[in-house]
Amino acid sequence: MPSLSTRPRVKSNAVPEADKALLIVAQSAELAVHDLYLNAITKAGFAGDELATMQLFADHHLAYVQAIGGLLGSDAPFERDDAIYQQFVGATSSGATATRTLQALENTLAATHTDILSRIVGTNGAELVASIIVVEARHAAVFGSLPTMSLTSALDNPAVSLLPPATGTTTETTTETTVAP
């Protein structure tokens, strides 16, 4: 076994000031998507196991809101991004468009959180966001796999980040999602 001098990891409960605004964006987007799931659950006519899946995913998004809130402490606003909610509340009210819209929202959250991950410096926040990204990618893949398997829909993420481009970068981002209900 080699003698290892592993880089010391900076672990602190404090969230760097520079990260707070980005984590607040993440929390408000999560709360909006959680509320959109609740809207779909009550209005889009889901039933049985499919309804249970929607409830499970809604619960996951609430868990992300709470986990980010725990990281931010008293700085956490727990406020929904109402622009996202209002943009998609109609599409999530109909059984014909709800699942496609929710999949696009999952893809958008995964892309947005990946963008956030590229900007935040604290390891606590980075590890939390990474653990959310993988599950939101799973959510999106479930929508691509059910009721019938579409590899393209399950595996590809055409969405872009909700964040504006970082200053001094050429990252392709937009302030709008790619959801097309």
Partner: peptide
């Protein structure tokens, strides 16, 4: 060590998670 590398890693990590779902 850098936010950029973390994001690069997770761009791939989420692809693997999608494979796992299928």
């Amino acid at each position: 060590s850098s936010p950029k590398l973390r994001a690069d890693a997770m761009r791939i990590g989420q692809d693997e998670a999608r494979h796992a779902v299928v």
